[in-house]
Design a protein around this nucleic acid. Sequence first.
DNA 1: GTAGATTCAGTATATGGTTATCGATATGAA
DNA 2: TTCATATCGATAACCATATACTGAATCTAC
Lengths: 234, 234
Amino acid sequence: MVIDMNLSIESPLKRPDAPSIPQPSLRRLPQYHHYLVDLEAKGIGRVSCSTIGRDLNLVPIQVRKDLQYTGIIGKPKTGYSVTELILTIETFLGWNNVNEAFLVGAGNLGTALLGHERFSKFGLQIVAAFDSDPQKAGIWIHNKAVLPLDKLADLAQRMSIHLGIITAPAENAQTIADEMVKGGIQAIWNFAPVKLNVPAHIIVHNEDLYSSLASLSWKLARRFRVPIQEREAV
Amino acid sequence: MVIDMNLSIESPLKRPDAPSIPQPSLRRLPQYHHYLVDLEAKGIGRVSCSTIGRDLNLVPIQVRKDLQYTGIIGKPKTGYSVTELILTIETFLGWNNVNEAFLVGAGNLGTALLGHERFSKFGLQIVAAFDSDPQKAGIWIHNKAVLPLDKLADLAQRMSIHLGIITAPAENAQTIADEMVKGGIQAIWNFAPVKLNVPAHIIVHNEDLYSSLASLSWKLARRFRVPIQEREAV
DNA sequence: GTAGATTCAGTATATGGTTATCGATATGAA
DNA sequence: TTCATATCGATAACCATATACTGAATCTAC
């Protein structure tokens, strides 16, 4: 029943598994995590929502609400144990278990992701890259082999890979997604700016830079269009 | 008064200019745009919300609502003119006017963005890159010069650059943001996973891959943790 | 030319997420 | 030991967005 749940682009028709945590809260958790790791490094043992809120520019209530979703239990007056909280968030997000992934599209963006070692801290391990361009097959990028696309399905199946990352151009994205599904991949992190057509049980997460750019450029355009401070419905 | 409005991470304290369009709608517009350009290429002249909805997996009502924000006027029974709609969206998003931008952090991700020619179609023109590593200063990436960071503020001012892109590691992000502000940059597209501290009038847009990854890995973890179909509050 | 179907526009309702309130509990100081 | 204060946890109010509804406009077919 779980399907694409891209926060902003999702069709409301097919409501996915009512998540037990709001998407925005979910997306704030890594921010807390990052902050808490810093705290721990500084040797700080306990922290309260108010402190977190002050440092991260969030209202304490929201912080508390977000953390509650993870199941952490705090103590009045003292807050939460930093170490325990970090662990709770990691467990909640599944960062403790490694997710092995295949990446398809060894272009600029794909290369960037392949070289991003930090992902391993968050349970993401890209084990191989693929490309439909035969020219690219055989080369190595950041110590990962680039294989021809037609090997994907078979390999995914044999290696029990559950996660696929698409960093290919929009035109190829659907074909790639089909291959991934054929290989038994359960979740797709899609950087191509298209809506993928996949069976309902596949989790699709769209990472659309153009969405963000749209939002940003609208604000910027507006800034120069209307006098500061003015705001009225179009 | 407009400030960071990152859809999901924003502090609720400082409510930005009540946008005359909901963020989610704003983020869906590029999707429509992409679709419409395809249609136009196929020679299709008019399109209705129902058709768009069917093709993009959205309910027609939502499509209509989103398009209304752009100010487009449709005709009952026939829908909208494709060409006019494309133009309306582009104008609304400010994609007609070029936004010149500076990018800081010539690492993997920075290189990827520098090489992404498509941005120019959406009004984004990255004119130069910067890096705090002196080793990188002087090299060229995808036909763009990489300059030392300390040149940024002055250049931004003299060239009237309004947009800055941060693709540097989290540790350096704040310093870079400070430089950008000093140079008169109005909006920052921040790919570093930290909350930037900038004056209220600066537009900050956070593009946090870890947020997305969190969301994705939570769903995946959940998939294997709870039997399919089960869904209950934590 | 008229009837019927389709779609747009504007208004109303429902849902989900955020913010505020309240009581309970632990800590630290008197 | 007792009191004041900070903080948690739960519930409730509120707000933004998504969805539904109604009426008017336009096209097509007869």
